[in-house]
């Protein structure tokens, strides 16, 4: 008798448990339900009131406007040289018209963070994203070390500009694109393709030469 009772109890608990599980699953399903249904396009009243003739005219006019806009937009991208930097892949492209004039590995910002000994100033070594323009071109560039370069080396920061000058570290050419950022050469060619710079874009000498010869002040630079 007692065995029968316990069997019944187990069955009841099983049924109840299953029911709770089903309800729980349903509840979670409802809770997670998404609302991404795209509603059917509502026709504005001014279009809904149009007769067949007007609808035809409007459709033709809109199609022509769209075509014109697409053509105009296609012409917006510079037909001259442009520099594209894919910072995720550490890859640089020199575009000329509708072809790639040069492409190569490059190095971009390391993402490192440096805080000075007082804890007052912090630098993050990132390559900025967005649109820039080549501002100037320099042959045999000299690097004027900024404050962080001295702090990183644990050296005192000099007062005069001349004490900051270092030759032969930026390669043969440099193209400035604002806020102290350059596309320049490197001594550490084996690190090309990795994010190890202080924010500048380092490129191999051969590619740099090609970019330097093609780019002019004003050449667009896209970093993404």
């Amino acid at each position: 008798m007692s065995r029968l009772k316990s069997r019944n109890a187990i069955a009841a608990v099983g049924v109840l448990g299953s029911l709770i599980l089903v309800l729980l699953a349903g509840f979670i399903g409802l809770w997670l339900q998404r609302s991404d249904d795209t509603p059917e396009l509502a026709i504005p009243s001014e279009i809904a009131g149009m007769d067949l003739n007007t609808v035809h005219k409007q459709a033709a006019s809109l199609t022509s406007q769209i075509k014109k806009l697409e053509e105009k937009e296609n012409r917006l991208f510079p037909s001259g040289p442009a520099i594209l930097v894919d910072s995720a892949a550490n890859h640089i492209y020199l575009i000329k018209g509708s072809s790639i004039a040069a492409q190569d590995k490059c190095s971009t910002g390391s993402g490192l963070e440096l805080t000075d000994t007082n804890g007052l100033r912090t630098w993050t070594f990132d390559t900025p994203r967005g649109y820039f323009r080549a501002l100037s071109k320099v042959t045999n560039p000299v690097w004027y070390r900024p404050d962080w370069a001295f702090i990183e080396e644990g050296e005192p920061i000099p007062k005069d500009r001349e004490s900051r000058a270092v030759a032969d570290v930026l390669g043969d050419y440099a193209i400035a694109f604002g806020d102290g950022y350059f596309i320049h050469g490197t001594l550490y060619t084996r690190m090309l393709g990795t994010s190890v710079t202080h924010g500048c874009i380092r490129v191999d000498d051969d590619t740099l030469k090609k970019i330097y010869e093609t780019a002019q002040p004003g050449t667009p630079i896209y970093i993404f």
């Binding site: 396009l41 509502a42 149009m50 067949l52 459709a59 809109l62 769209i66 937009e73």
Partner: peptide, 15 residues
């Protein structure tokens, strides 16, 4: 056709 015009209008605005 009206639906097409409505779509073209949005496309034109977006473009």
């Amino acid at each position: 056709l009206r639906k097409q015009v409505a779509e073209l209008t949005i496309r034109q605005q977006v473009l």
